[in-house]
Design a protein around this nucleic acid. Structure first.
Lengths: 215, 215
DNA sequence: TTTATACCCGACCGATCGGTCGGTCTGCAA
DNA sequence: TTGCAGACCGACCGATCGGTCGGGTATAAA
């Protein structure tokens, strides 16, 4: 009676709490006791929904990647030109990172916390597949732009890395980024500015300059 | 007799080991027992050199930042034009990240693991100061370029973020980056390509385009 | 009314955590 | 020869870690 979500949603509540905590303090920095109690449960009840800590972690990561994929898929599949699709991908990616704070940190950590799990865990595979899928489509889009002559002859994997840095790292930078910008990272003004800066860098820095003689 | 560094250097050995481990698994993911034994000591001996885990951590970070500062300072202070100084900063930054693998991950983690330490620790202050100093000089250099008219009227803090992403994130990306590139991140060939890509993006994307009418 | 299932809990397990303590060994100065 | 300080160690501390276990409760099908 008192709870807004009486019984349904306990699993989602755990995922919400775990997403926030893992984003803030990383896999090793979060204890299951804190996750459970923040979600309003005893620690034992966690193991009713998730068999282990790593399964919970990859479930959180999977949910973040599913949201991202759902948002980006129609744009990748859209019929616009490569450069316009790239613009829309950047905007949608940033929108997703802003609407779900923590996603950026969680993803950034996932990209370079591979050493946390020495043995390859089976529950990690769908997550790795989802990352590969999104990154692969982004790389393909860049290749298409180069092939169509609308982008410079850049190394597309390096450009993928640069775009990840320009978006995911930026929104994961937390206090440091806010000190640098002198204000909140997620204000609509600063988000708009970030989109503009990244797109401008892309248009000036990646677009083929029609009048410039090639090297 | 058997040790190459008989007694002198035990502290440095600890710092070396801790740098590698903290870079790979983060602050919370590393136990002092492992640090000590990898350095060839008992755990108790660690506390003879460092009063606490956090003091060790910030000593490691401080050493990384000192190396970086020593390398970048003469370039910042040099007499070259802003654009050429920017090129040299990027090259020197990447050289430093390559010569000391782990630095990239350590620094990236430091930039967004602020939540690991809820209470402000006194030993963190010199580290924060060193970061602010380097970032401040980079920002000033970008401002100088804009003022001199050799750079577009970009937001300099946002551009700092982009450059951090393009350099530090890239060399921190580990297995993910190697999968993306299809080979080792630190091969001289791939390092050379990274420098070239970042500088090209900078020249095409940041340099003022003299013939283009402003918006 | 019985049985099955989902959900949740307190108590407990062995292991590991950061950190302390008392003490040993070595080299050097007095 | 003594004394002192730096370097090092094993044993131990309370706390917390991920995970298990047996049991309690509610709902719904049989």
């Amino acid at each position: 009676m008192s709870e807004p979500t009486p019984t349904i949603g306990s699993r989602e509540k755990i995922l919400d709490v775990a997403e926030s905590l893992f984003a803030r303090r990383g896999y090793a920095g979060v204890g299951l006791r804190e996750v459970a109690e923040t979600a309003g449960l005893g620690k034992s009840s966690l193991f009713h929904h998730f068999r282990s800590k790593s399964e919970l972690y990859f479930a959180v990561l999977g949910r973040v990647l599913d949201r991202m994929d759902e948002r980006l898929r129609p744009i990748f599949a859209g019929g616009a030109g490569p450069l316009e699709r790239l613009d829309r991908i950047i905007e949608a990616l940033i929108d997703e990172l802003v609407e779900h704070p923590g996603s950026a940190r969680l993803l950034l950590r996932a990209l370079f916390e591979d050493d946390d799990f020495a043995e390859p865990l089976p529950e990690a595979e769908p997550v790795e597949g989802a990352i590969e899928s999104i990154v692969g489509r982004l790389d393909a889009l860049l290749r298409e732009g180069v092939a169509a002559g609308v982008l410079r002859r850049v190394s597309t994997p390096h450009t993928v890395q640069t775009l990840i840095g320009a978006t995911i790292y930026h929104f994961a930078s937390g206090e440091f980024g806010e000190t640098l910008l002198g204000g909140p990272l997620l204000s609509s003004e600063e988000v708009r500015r970030r989109k503009q800066e990244v797109k401008a860098l892309l248009h000036h820095g990646l677009a083929a300059t029609p009048a410039t003689p090639g090297s």
